[in-house]
Design a protein around this nucleic acid. Sequence first.
DNA 1: TCTGGGGTCCTAGGACCC
DNA 2: TCTGGGGTCCTAGGACCC
Length: 472
Amino acid sequence: MRQQASVLHLDLDAFFAAVEQRDKPSLRGKPVVVGGTGGRGVVSTASYEARVYGVHSAMSTREARARCPHAAYLGGRFHAYRAASAQVMAALREVSPLVEPLSLDEAFLDLAAGPQAEGRDLSVAGVAELAERLRARVHEVTGGLTASVGVATSKFMAKVASDLDKPDGLVVVAPGTERELLRPMAATVIPGVGPATADRLRRAGIHTVADLEAVSLEELVRLLGRAMGAGLHALARAQDDRPVVAEREAKSVSVEGTYETDLTDRALMEGLLTRQARQVAERLRKHGLSGRTVSIKVRRHDFTTLSRSSTLASPTDAATTIARTARGLLADLDTSGGIRLLGVGVSGLADWIQEDLFADLERAEQAEQESADEEVAQVPAELLSRRTTWSPGSDVEHDEWGRGWVWGAGRGVVTVRFETAETPAGPVRSFAIDDPRLRPWLPPELPDQPTDDPLLPGDHGENRSPGGVPGS
DNA sequence: TCTGGGGTCCTAGGACCC
DNA sequence: TCTGGGGTCCTAGGACCC
């Protein structure tokens, strides 16, 4: 425990929604909800105007719409959020080199670290002034976003403090006053105490931090297990020595998706898994990582969640290896009744180390093999149209059935039906995906529904040359 | 037609090794 | 040959966080 309040926690207010309101003046002062907009979406962030109607994060978008139908519902622009977040983190680093981001909108800052801290006034008044300057700076560099800040002698207390005066507030907890501040609060202020733990505590007659403080370590460990018990015992007494850590290494990389309608087709599941494996591999490589353990996650129609994992002999960042392993893991799972979610992950990460030339060569070969194997997303034959194919900007080869093999970057095999009609404006082609189950393999620019595209030249599809792409 | 996506950490049991 | 104890790795599931 520090003697001075030198740990700062900053939390951007209603971050995603605030960025939207900043960038779109018509949304200012109005309820804005950012999150999944589909049938199974949930709210990521609600602006304060929307919270008045009871909309909050993690609520299903369906329910949010019922409570606040006139809100703007937005899917989110993560590039904009990342950019704003980077501006904020840079502003924090002007104050201290020790910045620990927790997410895009939250970070800890160690006010006692780095050359800037030399001779810094860490009294309550001193850090309050510093924090106000920082909040103003964040407002300035982001073009108007507000942040709530807490400053205290530990991470735990700083985080509790930043929550006390939201939005756009500042609370400094004077050293020595932590326990009296905490005592009347609900036990759920302690990070790690969620619904399940709160329930167990409640059944033991523990509601507040004061109640928690009265329970012995042995009793808490008996009640909640070794780690949680010891953790709560300490935090209830405001004992928290965790340092602010700037760089934390990723432990896993994963991609998952929840689908509008439950999946029942195994071939489709394999196709999705394959595509997700490719995304995971891409991210692993981007960060120079590889991992030994490949996992899949399946959420069934009844929301029960299963996971399976397999640890390889050596780390991989190869899409084909991840995909093959993932499909193998799926094979053991009962998915009858349909599944709503499917995901792939890699853990047991290690930085890629160039051990020797041989390993390097092997890796190059593997990468080559990989691009040759770009077919991984093999569309099940029964889903393929026998009409013709289309893919923007890709070379297309036909097989005898008129199926298309598309060798575009990152694409699999696709096939699409189109029809041509003569209109006064000339021939018009309409596109349609034969089967909605094909969606995962199709380029995103291709519409789900038949679409008239008068820009495309007329063509009856029967005599198209290989490589002939509409519009070319 | 309730219930996202990206993560982290913990627990418990079994295999395996010394 | 009837029985142990510790350590590590692996797997599955669950709780939690933003």
